[in-house]
């Protein structure tokens, strides 16, 4: 599962009278726990050490958050998996 699917966007109304440069697209997080219900058995796991780093044993629940600044910088962390 691609982590980018865990984010949604919307376009807020922009008034011609707004005092500041508008943010055209707003992003919000919809993490995997919203979609799983009771966890089914036999899901794919991280190896033990990677799980400790990721914060979860279960690959389907891994959803790291990066700020827009970090994404823009394309930091090495962005593409890193645990």
């Amino acid at each position: 599962m691609n982590r980018h699917t865990w984010y949604r966007t919307y376009r807020p109304y922009i008034s011609p009278m707004d005092p500041c440069p508008p943010i055209k697209v707003k992003r919000y997080s919809t993490p995997p726990n919203l979609f799983v219900g009771f966890q089914p058995p036999g899901l794919e796991q991280f190896p033990a050490l990677a799980a400790l780093k990721a914060g979860t044993l279960w690959k389907c629940f891994y959803d790291p958050y990066y700020s827009l600044k970090e994404l823009k910088r394309g930091s090495e962390n962005e593409t890193a998996s645990p």
Partner: peptide, 16 residues
């Protein structure tokens, strides 16, 4: 990011 991931897991377990 680790702490945020734990919040996701906790939410999942409370939902369960």
């Amino acid at each position: 990011r680790f702490l945020r991931e734990r919040e996701i897991i906790h939410s999942q377990r409370f939902r369960e």
